[in-house]
């Protein structure tokens, strides 16, 4: 019994020659995550088709209305239809998350590549990144939004700002290890210019880890957006975001728990879909890590 329990390092290393196309169907996480996101994306893009009304419509006569045919999930303290709000919240959350992921990936890649290629800039950039990373993320976002004012645009800028340093560090470390590889040394010896090496050797090399990192930023950004709105440091209170719905329902949640749980569960499902996608992508694109979180 004791002997069987010894974890033997897996000898079955996946053959490197297996094409991406063959490995893809083997990772259900990517497909499950993508499918959930696709449905949420459709709901967010066309909430009207799913029976959502006007998220700004205040039906003062029907405040805190119970579940009914007209209001499938009831209404909030201002008489807004909770079902409508929840669907429109998906729009806000997905847009903020996606925008932050794309912006942080591009900016982070740029900073990381500059840091890895321009030797004299490297220590300066790294120290600044250290400084930004030393500030707890949500605290920094609060500071940025408090200064710049609460709007969705500023939330996106703030989250992008705090997510750039980890991306830049990742990209830099990948690029630095690429620099030592023989095929890059060969290119240098053959007289390739620095921009050429960055574009044709570094950029393709960082794509896979960058993509994985971007999905995790997407998930983190949605959580931070909800947190900022919840504490009143996000989009203006009238914006139908999940954080704002919860913030408005905070004082009444014991009377009507759905005011909290509907947006919270929506956020949970969305974040989990993105995390599944990211987890799956990581296992798919990086076979070395497979044994760690198989």
């Amino acid at each position: 019994m004791k002997m069987q329990a010894i974890p033997v390092p897996s000898k079955a290393k996946p053959a490197k020659a297996i094409s991406l196309r063959r490995r893809m169907p083997g990772n259900p996480k990517v497909w499950v995550g993508a499918a959930i996101l696709f449905c949420l994306g459709l709901a967010a893009a066309f909430p009207g088709l799913l029976g959502a009304g006007d998220p700004y419509l205040l039906d003062v006569e029907n405040r805190l209305a119970p579940v009914s045919a007209a209001h499938p999930l009831g209404t909030d303290s201002l008489g807004r239809d909770l079902y409508t709000l929840a669907l429109h919240g998906a729009r806000v959350s997905l847009v903020v998350g996606f925008a932050c992921a794309v912006l942080a990936a591009i900016l982070g890649a740029f900073v990381g590549l500059v840091s890895a290629s321009v030797r004299w800039l490297d220590p300066i950039i790294m120290r600044i990144l250290d400084g930004i990373l030393a500030i707890p993320a949500i605290m920094f976002a609060i500071l940025l939004v408090a200064v710049a004012g609460g709007s969705l645009q500023n939330v996106i800028i703030a989250v992008t700002f705090i997510e750039v340093p980890p991306v830049a560090r990742l990209v830099r470390s990948v690029a630095l290890s690429l620099r030592e590889r023989p095929f890059v040394e060969a290119a240098v010896a053959a007289g390739s210019s620095l921009p050429r090496i960055v574009v044709f050797y570094f950029v393709p090399g960082i794509m896979a880890p960058l993509l994985v990192q971007a999905t995790f930023i997407w998930a983190a950004a949605m959580m931070i957006e909800a947190a900022l709105s919840f504490i009143g440091a996000g989009a203006p209170p009238s914006t139908p975001s999940w954080g704002n719905i919860m913030s408005a329902g905070r004082s009444l949640w014991q009377i009507k728990p759905m005011l909290i749980f509907v947006p919270a569960v929506m956020l949970f499902v969305t974040v989990m879909a993105v995390n599944l996608l990211g987890d799956g992508l990581r296992q798919w694109l990086d076979p070395r890590r497979k044994r760690q979180r198989a």
């Binding site: 996480k29 998930a219 959580m223 909800a226 947190a227 919840f230 919860m246 949640w253 728990p257 909290i260 749980f261 947006p263 919270a264 569960v265 956020l267 949970f268 974040v271 989990m272 995390n275 599944l276 987890d279």
Partner: peptide, 17 residues
């Protein structure tokens, strides 16, 4: 994977509920 995605709102209000 599951608990990585749980927003603090769910764990907090869930426990309180």
């Amino acid at each position: 994977t599951f608990s990585f995605s749980v927003p603090v709102f769910i764990s907090a209000y869930g426990l309180a509920y």
